[in-house]
Amino acid sequence: MATGRTDPQRRERILAATLDHIAEEGVAGVSHRKIATRADVPLGSMTYHFDGMDDLLMEAFTRFADQFVAVFEQYLGRAGTLEEAREAVVDLIHVLSEGPRRELVLTQELYTLAARRDEYRELTHAWMNRSRRLLEQHFDPDTARQLDALIEGVALHRSLDTEPQGRELTKLAVLRMTSGV
């Protein structure tokens, strides 16, 4: 643990520890004491840096959403043609579904909060809008909306399926959705 009067990484460690804890035990298992222990910070740091549990959770999930959108930016940003954009969508689906289980759990925990509480619904709405704007660089708005749902849905199914669909079936779904038929 850093000592002294200033610890510029303390707030960041708390947010990272919060996401790690949620991934392991769920939102219901979060407490200031558990997060402070995991982040290796004094308990008083929790109330110094955050106005309460909702503030901590909102900032942690905002960070997570930002990281998720960065993945969309990475893949869609390098696409220059329609075919490259289609391939980027396929890549996104497979990267997201084959990635760490942590990301899947965090996404579902956030969606559960959003289903119950308006402030988290606003966060997920903003996240979806950002993803769609990136898709709209390559596809019309209606197709972008559908692709956004396809990406999340197929990634979720692939993550949870004991025999996930292969890349060729994903390519076919993206092609059908983006061919204007």
Rank of each mutant, 00 (worst) to 15 (best):
Q146N: 07
D54R: 04
F50V: 05
M58Q: 07
F50H: 01
M128W: 05
L135T: 09
T178P: 14
L96N: 09
A60D: 11
G153E: 05
L147I: 10
R11Q: 14
A88Y: 01
A85N: 02
P141K: 07
D51Y: 05
I22E: 12
H21C: 04
A88I: 01
W127V: 07
A65N: 15
L43S: 03
D118P: 05
T37V: 11
D142F: 13
Q165R: 15
R10I: 14
Q108I: 00
T107G: 07
V154W: 01
F68R: 07
A173V: 14
F72S: 05
T170A: 14
L156Y: 12
A79R: 01
Q74H: 07
A65W: 11
L172P: 14
M58T: 05
A28E: 15
F64V: 06
S97T: 04
P100W: 00
T107L: 04
I93Y: 06
G77A: 03
V30Y: 00
A115V: 02
V95M: 09
L172I: 11
V174S: 14
F61N: 05
T81R: 00
L104H: 04
T112H: 05
A2H: 02
T62I: 04
A79N: 01
N129W: 05
R117I: 03
L150H: 10
V154C: 04
L172H: 13
E12R: 12
E84D: 15
L135G: 11
E59P: 03
A85D: 03
D142H: 15
D20L: 11
R116G: 00
A155Q: 10
E152R: 15
P164V: 15
I35W: 03
L57I: 03
H125M: 08
L104E: 01
G180D: 08
T18D: 08
D142P: 12
L104W: 02
G80Y: 07
E98P: 06
E119L: 11
A88R: 01
R132Q: 14
L19N: 10
V181Q: 14
T37Y: 13
V95E: 13
E25K: 05
F64E: 10
L76N: 04
L104V: 00
T47Q: 14
V69L: 13
R5V: 14
Q146P: 02
E103N: 13
T124K: 15
E122C: 09
A70I: 00
F64Y: 11
T3K: 12
E59L: 07
E83N: 03
E87F: 02
L106P: 01
L150D: 07
L110W: 10
D66P: 01
H138W: 12
D7K: 10
T112R: 10
F72D: 06
E168R: 12
T81E: 03
Y111P: 00
L104M: 02
A155K: 15
P8E: 07
W127P: 00
P141A: 12
N129T: 11
H125P: 00
L82T: 03
D40T: 05
V90N: 13
T47Y: 14
V181W: 11
E152C: 09
D91C: 04
N129L: 12
T62R: 13
